[in-house]
């Protein structure tokens, strides 16, 4: 193992160990927050696979999050599926939705791609509202406590919920770390950096980008399905434009194209909103100012800036 590989694994395993320990140290309020942050970070990590690594700026990721959330929720609520099967189905729904969108949207690039993905997500959101008899529209679906039992563990219990969120986050983080350090991860970055050059090295841009988008959708679907199960609620607002923008903000804040950036961004943004809403009702203004400062002084996000200033090995 080279020195850099050692540093990389030490850092990421260290973060995971700290998160695992935090459960026993932090007060209950922060426990709940961190569970939420870890699930949202999985969503943002998926967004980062497409945006940060492959250069695909989608404005429609809420569709993939929503596919996971509703895929899981409706199977539990309408078909009486167990949590484990519904979770798996939700993950698959995120990936399948990304495949379908990608097959069409990846014929475009740049601004057109942003608009097409935005339109798809908006269509998905309106579909959820339109089929209110099945989706319960604005009101949403509450997942019964009885249905929130996975492998015998009661996910509505705070401690179990934290551990479940942690397990998902840890798996997602380690898979992503392996992915971005793999030959395929290198090809994703190559697509982002110079598509024409990559094509002339024998890589099919459409297939590479489609594969990255599907992986991204699987992450988003997993996060959506887990969110519904862990917090017991499936609602249309999670499929709205706001939830397409959130992972973008997390990733920009933490550092696009870094493995830990999405988590860092999600945590900071979460607590920033939390703090600001305690002080002023104009908490979104605080968020806006924070983002402005970021774009002006650290356009590559926090970890992106650190990578430029000496931590070159940061994946």
């Amino acid at each position: 193992m080279t020195g850099n590989a050692f540093k990389v694994w030490a850092l990421h395993l260290g973060v995971l160990a700290a998160l695992l320990a935090a459960q026993f140290v932090l007060p209950a309020y922060h426990n709940g927050n961190l569970a939420r942050i870890m699930v949202l970070a999985v969503y943002a990590m998926g967004f980062n696979i497409a945006f940060g690594y492959t250069g695909l700026l989608s404005l429609g990721h809420a569709l993939f999050f929503g596919a996971g959330l509703y895929g899981m929720g409706m199977l539990v609520a309408l078909a009486g599926w167990g949590a484990g099967a519904a979770l798996t189905a939700g993950i698959a729904a995120g990936g399948a939705m990304a495949l379908a969108v990608g097959l069409l949207a990846l014929r475009t690039a740049g601004v057109s791609f942003m608009i097409v993905t935005l339109m798809f997500a908006q269509a998905g959101y309106l579909t959820i509202l339109y089929y209110t008899p099945y989706t319960r529209g604005e009101e949403g679906i509450v997942i019964d406590r009885a249905a929130r039992v996975l492998l015998g563990f009661d996910l509505s219990d705070d401690g179990v919920r934290y551990f479940a969120a942690f397990a998902l986050f840890a798996a997602a983080l380690l898979v992503k770390l392996a992915l971005v350090r793999s030959p395929f991860g290198r090809v994703m970055v190559a697509m982002r950096e110079n598509e024409e050059r990559s094509r002339m090295l024998g890589y099919d841009p459409f297939r590479i980008k489609l594969a990255a988008l599907v992986l991204s959708g699987i992450y988003a679907g997993a996060a959506g399905a887990a969110y519904g199960l862990l917090f017991g609620y499936v609602g249309a607002s999670f499929a709205s434009i706001q939830y397409s923008i959130l992972p973008l903000l997390y990733v920009l804040l933490g550092g696009a194209g870094t493995v830990l950036g999405p988590f860092l961004g999600a945590a900071l943004m979460f607590y920033l909103i939390d703090l600001a809403s305690g002080i002023t009702t104009a908490h979104l203004l605080v968020v806006g100012v924070a983002l402005l400062v970021l774009v002006l002084f650290a356009p590559k996000g926090i970890l992106g800036a650190l990578r430029d200033r000496g931590l070159k090995w940061l994946p």
Partner: peptide
Amino acid sequence: AIYARLSVLDNIALAVQS
């Protein structure tokens, strides 16, 4: 047309792994 922001090794590896 090289990948200016990637290492020299990454550039060549992209060709070799292709």
